[in-house]
């Protein structure tokens, strides 16, 4: 047998994921489809926020939603009823979507002719933050009952996203959630982040979030270097 040799590889384990994500982004751009990756813990109101958002925007544009859940199609049906085209991906035991899975979702949805696509990631504040999906923008939703300490516990998510929705502000009186403290904690991790306090249930605060989407779609900067 030949001599044992050491081969230096120095290859990032996520390099391929970033490559695939960048290809997805340029393909979507060519088709003029704007994709937003939506991340949060389970139960923060991803689907209900999307339903409200779709209701507000459907008169102006074609919207699609890629739902990723371990099982069931309840979310896909909700967003379809609201007026969006939807596909449900069953992700089994996976804890996050990577660029390859996101691409499979985009292909299944058939995005041609759509203007805006939401990628509703798996409910998880940790693993989802580590993967570029090929979206132009990444956002997170944190709901009031989860508490204002989450940026301290899961900093990576808050460091990475372009915008943060604080959902369920209608129940604020019943929880010890301090919006000022939350904002301080988030800005310490990510000073340019946009924060939108809203209630998907009552509709309060939705307009600022909707305006942000429209502005970003018009010429918002892309994520190209996002690793």
């Amino acid at each position: 047998m030949d001599e044992l040799k050491i081969f230096s590889i120095k290859k990032g384990i996520q390099e391929d994921n970033v490559k695939i994500a960048n290809i997805t982004r340029s393909e979507l751009k060519e088709k003029e489809v704007f994709m937003i990756n939506v991340m949060s813990s389970p139960g923060s109101g991803k689907t209900s926020t999307l339903v409200r958002t779709i209701e507000k925007l459907k008169g102006e544009m074609g919207i699609g939603v890629i739902e990723a859940d371990v099982d069931s199609d309840v979310d896909a049906r909700s967003v379809q009823n609201a007026g969006a085209k939807a596909v449900q991906m069953h992700t089994g035991g996976l804890c996050h979507l990577d660029a390859t899975m996101a691409k499979a979702g985009i292909d299944a949805l058939e995005v041609d002719g759509l203007d805006l696509v939401f990628l509703e990631n798996i409910g998880n504040l940790i693993c989802t933050a580590g993967y570029d999906t090929g979206a132009m923008k990444d956002i997170a939703i944190l709901s009031v009952p989860e508490g204002d300490d989450k940026p301290l516990k899961y900093p990576m998510m808050f460091e990475r996203v372009d915008a943060l929705i604080i959902n369920k502000i209608d129940v604020m009186p019943y929880f010890d959630f301090n919006m000022t403290v939350l904002e301080e904690r988030v800005r310490k991790l990510n000073k340019d982040i946009k924060i939108f306090p809203l209630s998907a249930k009552t509709g309060e605060g939705m307009d600022a979030w909707i305006d942000w989407i429209k502005t970003e779609m018009k010429g918002g900067k892309s994520n190209e270097s996002n690793a």
Partner: peptide
């Protein structure tokens, strides 16, 4: 101060392999 620049810690790569 709490203002810093990270110089290492995010690495996640295959450094090398030993092979015939």
């Amino acid at each position: 101060s709490e203002d810093f620049t990270l110089i290492s810690g995010r690495e996640f790569s295959i450094k090398e392999i030993a092979a015939y």
